[in-house]
Amino acid sequence: MEGMMLGNLVAALAVAMSRFFSDMEARRHEIEAYLSLGASPFEAAKPSILAAIRLGLIPTIAQLASSGVVLIPGMMAGQIMTGGDPLEAAEYQFVVLAALSAITMLGDALITLLLYQRCFTELGQYISPRAR
């Protein structure tokens, strides 16, 4: 189960990080304007952070939407095929999917919060990700 969680988390983090850096670069002038008007680095980066978290969660949300209706996930199918109670198998699968969603959301949030700090100097000046 840990392998499945880490595999999904790594994929979600890659999507979130890619979106974060591309969004920060696209919003470069907006971020500099926010900073020049007295906004904190977090306030300037917040739209990019939220966009990255949202995009990083899309694969997990799509998996949740299709589970049980379009496809029967592996753990649930295995329990049913071995003669287990389908409702109990669905409950276990729900726990796995809820844990997967939670770890994905937490991982995306943590990585973007750590990354945004690397885009600013100690004085709060924006540093383009390409400049590093």
Rank of each mutant, 00 (worst) to 15 (best):
E30M: 10
I127M: 08
L100T: 00
P59W: 00
S36C: 03
R118P: 05
D85M: 03
L71K: 12
G84N: 11
Y126E: 04
M24G: 02
M81T: 08
Y116E: 10
S40R: 11
G78W: 08
Q93S: 15
Y34Q: 09
L123S: 14
I58T: 11
S67H: 10
F21W: 09
E88W: 07
L87Y: 15
P86W: 14
L100H: 02
V96D: 13
P47C: 10
E25S: 06
S18E: 05
T60I: 01
E32R: 15
S40N: 12
R130V: 11
L115K: 06
S66R: 07
L64N: 01
I31Q: 02
A90S: 09
R28V: 02
V95E: 09
Q117Y: 06
E30D: 09
A77G: 04
L57G: 09
S66N: 08
D85Y: 05
F94V: 05
L113V: 10
T82F: 08
P47R: 12
A65I: 05
T121V: 09
Y92R: 14
R27P: 00
L71N: 14
S48L: 01
T112F: 00
I127W: 09
A16E: 03
C119V: 00
L35K: 12
L50D: 08
L64V: 01
R132F: 07
G107D: 03
Q93F: 04
A44N: 07
I31P: 00
E25G: 02
P59N: 10
R118L: 14
E91K: 15
V69S: 13
E122T: 08
R130D: 08
G84H: 13
L123F: 13
L55M: 12
E91Y: 14
S40F: 07
T60L: 01
R118T: 15
G74S: 09
T82E: 08
I111C: 05
T104G: 00
A39E: 09
V69D: 06
A102F: 15
R132P: 00
A98N: 08
E88D: 04
A45P: 02
G68S: 05
A39R: 11
L87S: 14
R27N: 14
S22Y: 13
Q93R: 14
V95N: 11
L114G: 13
F94N: 07
G56Y: 00
A45W: 01
T112K: 02
M81K: 10
T112E: 00
V95I: 15
Q117M: 06
Y34P: 01
A65Q: 10
Y92N: 15
Y116T: 05
T121D: 04
